[in-house]
Design a protein around this nucleic acid. Structure first.
Length: 637
RNA sequence: GCCAGCGUAGCUCAGUGGUAGAGCAGCUGAUUCGUAAUCAGCAGGUCCAGGGUUCAAGUCCCUGCGCUGGCUCCA
């Protein structure tokens, strides 16, 4: 192994640091970096340690602790410190991998036993000691074979496996040592453990080696670290905030939906207010689709097994499906809505003039989700999609895709979501020719390119019958959720042998688009709840206003106002209980009702109402004026 | 499905192997009040289910179910 003596050349050098030219007799980058917050540096776009030797004429950019890259490096270093702590406390734990993530870091260990919450505390304490000791991170470059031998001797088989699985052309690997711990690692790292000023261990979880469920389950410890204690604190606050917005908690508190152990896991039961919310969204969707040339259709929930064989579901989707038997015939409970729509298409001879045909269905689908993945409204075993299938000619394909992209944009604007898009390509489990897949994928790309919209590629994540554009919406606290998806399918038209008669009098094969805008209504409602923290916009609020009197003297007037509002389609509740107005307001606020309509003696005398908003602002007006305000909150689509 | 933790009143949660508890919500009564909780009383339990250990189990052990956090999978 070549040894570098950093102090070897004591000559003067001229380097550029963050755009400033510096003349130095120092030998490593750290010698010329004035910025105390610097944790690493960038040379020619490459991230390096501050201990990297200086070379004459180098252009150095420092990476501060509070930058995205800096935080990433701190987290990665924290993962190493955690591994050292674990090795000291539990010598039998074999380290595997420990990367930084978007909001923290983790390290996976192979160990006979699991870690307990008490272990977590011990590990955190030990980490604090290691940070206090301010141990330097020392990089060592090592020949690949030598490194493999080194880890084999240390009894760390996972590191050996990682080295052996590297590309053939890799000759040297780098190791980082701090204190008693050496890890295979590309780096860079902070100069010493003392740079890790704000960290916290969060949870223990199981994780498969290399993410494959056929492999051994490892013990993962999650933690997070930041450039400063202040940033760590604000992240922990953010987690608290997210907890308060949890749709499962709000769903119960606002009486929207429930789950019942007796009914079964992953099966949503809508309570009256949740039912109202859902029906409002569905009404909105029906209008939306009618106005854009869609037809509303309904298909059965179970279809013959034979049909699922033709569609390829039996070969590609069977493990997600439920089956039943009727008159000793096999039936599949639908996990998707496409088959009935294909039946509708097939029911007549179609002319090229008839296309595109757009069939829309608020279709409930049932999928056998593994027990461990079920999660409130966001992952259920039965859900309703705002599903549509568009049958079109190949020459109409791009136009139809772009129309859907526009529709997604309009709907997301109505709800106030921003979003990113990605294209998912052919998965391993799939059917059809390579040519079809290429055509379909190209069509999706062309449509996005034509609109000038940016997108990522998600290799191998398409549906089994075709590639898709996935829309990931971002909620109010920055988390992203998949809702809309647009799938391009050349497969099912062929399998069901559907066709249209072209202008040439010949039969031609149409193309099929599968698409959803909100995706699963359940999931979308879950995201809506968290996005608005339960304080829905007026137009979808299950209760838009609570009418309340101040004393029994205005009970009759309040009932009269309530009646007038109800007859004007304002969704109201009347709170005529013998309680103080402060108490009624408190309850309405907790229920996140947008308006409180207060009727005291003053209002009764003038024939008005006082309307209090969620913000606390209030105004006295007539019932008609208030009705107008509520009506105008309805979006036009 | 896998790993770990958890399961007590409608909700949030206390509970040392020895009589099942609190706050809020609910119900009843009093109070008639102007912008985030009026007072008093009452009622509320298969301690997730089944089995085991024990003189005795909410508490310890086993199995199942469910939930939570992850992993894999996904709208």
């Amino acid at each position: 192994m070549p040894t570098i003596f950093y102090g070897e050349h004591m000559s003067q050098r001229t380097v550029t640091v963050d755009g400033k030219s510096i003349s130095t007799d120092g030998s490593i980058i750290r010698d010329v970096v004035r910025d105390k917050r610097a944790v690493a540096a960038r040379i020619d776009g490459r991230l390096v340690d501050l201990s990297t030797p200086l070379a004459d004429g180098q252009d150095i950019a420092t990476v501060p602790a509070d930058s995205d890259e800096g935080v990433h490096i701190i987290r990665h270093s924290a993962a190493h410190v955690m591994a050292e702590a674990v090795k000291q406390l539990f010598p039998d734990a074999k380290p595997t991998i420990g990367p930084a993530t978007e909001d923290g870091f983790y390290y996976d260990f192979d160990r006979g036993q699991s870690f307990t919450p008490e272990d977590l505390e011990k590990i955190e304490k030990k980490m604090e000691e290691l940070v206090k000791a301010d141990l330097p991170f020392i990089r060592k470059d090592m020949d690949r074979q030598e490194a493999a031998a080194f880890f084999r001797e240390k009894g760390e088989p996972y590191k050996v496996e990682i080295i052996q699985d590297m590309d053939d052309e890799v000759c040297d690997v780098s190791l980082y040592e701090q204190g008693s711990f050496v890890d295979l690692c590309r780096g860079p790292h902070v100069p010493s453990t003392g740079y890790i000023k704000a960290f916290k261990l969060l949870s223990i979880a199981g994780a498969y080696w290399r993410g494959d469920e056929k492999n051994r389950m490892l013990q993962r410890i999650y933690g997070t670290a930041f450039g400063s204690p202040k940033d760590l604190k604000s992240y922990l606050n953010f987690l608290e905030e997210a907890k308060k917005r949890d749709h499962r908690k709000l769903g119960r508190e606002l009486d929207l939906f429930m789950f019942s152990d007796d009914a079964g896991p992953g099966l949503v039961i809508y309570m009256p207010k949740g039912g109202r919310l859902r029906s409002l969204i569905e009404e909105f969707e029906k209008r939306l689709h009618f106005r854009r040339g869609y037809d509303i259709v309904y298909g059965p929930n179970i279809l013959r097994g034979r049909l699922w064989e033709i569609s390829g579901h039996m070969d590609n989707y069977k493990e997600n499906m439920y089956f039943t038997e009727l008159d000793s015939q096999l039936y599949g409970i639908k996990p998707m809505n496409c088959l009935s729509h294909i039946m509708i298409y097939k029911s007549k001879v179609r002319s090229y003039r008839d296309l595109p045909l757009r069939y829309f269905e608020l279709g409930s689908v049932t999928r056998n989700e593994k027990s461990g993945v079920i999660h409130g409204l966001l992952r259920t075993r039965q859900f309703t999609q705002d599903d549509a299938h568009i049958f079109c000619r190949p020459d109409q394909l791009i136009e139809e895709i772009t129309a859907i992209i526009d529709m997604v944009a309009e709907v997301m604007a109505v709800f106030g979501f921003s979003y990113d898009m990605e294209i998912s390509t052919r998965p391993e489990q799939s059917m059809g020719s390579e040519e079809m897949w290429n055509m379909a994928t190209q069509a999706l790309k062309d449509a996005l390119d034509k609109k000038g919209l940016p997108y990522d590629i998600n290799e191998g994540d398409g549906a089994f019958y075709g590639p898709k554009i996935d829309v990931k919406i971002k909620d109010a606290i920055g988390r992203s959720w998949q809702c809309a998806t647009i799938q391009c399918d050349f497969n099912l038209p062929e399998r069901f042998d559907i066709h249209y008669v072209g202008s040439d009098g010949e039969r031609h094969r149409p193309v099929m688009l599968h698409r959803v805008i909100l995706g699963s209504i359940e999931r979308f409602i879950g995201v809506l709840i968290e996005h608005f923290a339960g304080a829905f916009p007026v137009w979808i609020s299950p209760v838009q206003a609570v009418v309340m009197n101040i004393t029994d003297a205005q009970a009759g007037y309040a009932a009269d106002v309530a009646d007038r509002l109800r007859k004007s389609d304002v969704r109201i509740e009347l709170d005529a209980r013998n309680e103080k107005i402060g108490y009624k307001i408190r309850e309405a606020r907790q229920q996140k009702v947008p308006y409180m309509v207060i009727t005291g003696d003053r209002e009764k005398e003038e024939g008005t109402i006082t309307v209090r908003e969620r913000s606390g602002d209030q105004q006295t007006m007539t019932v008609d004026e208030f009705v107008k305000i509520v009506r105008e909150a309805q979006p036009v689509v």
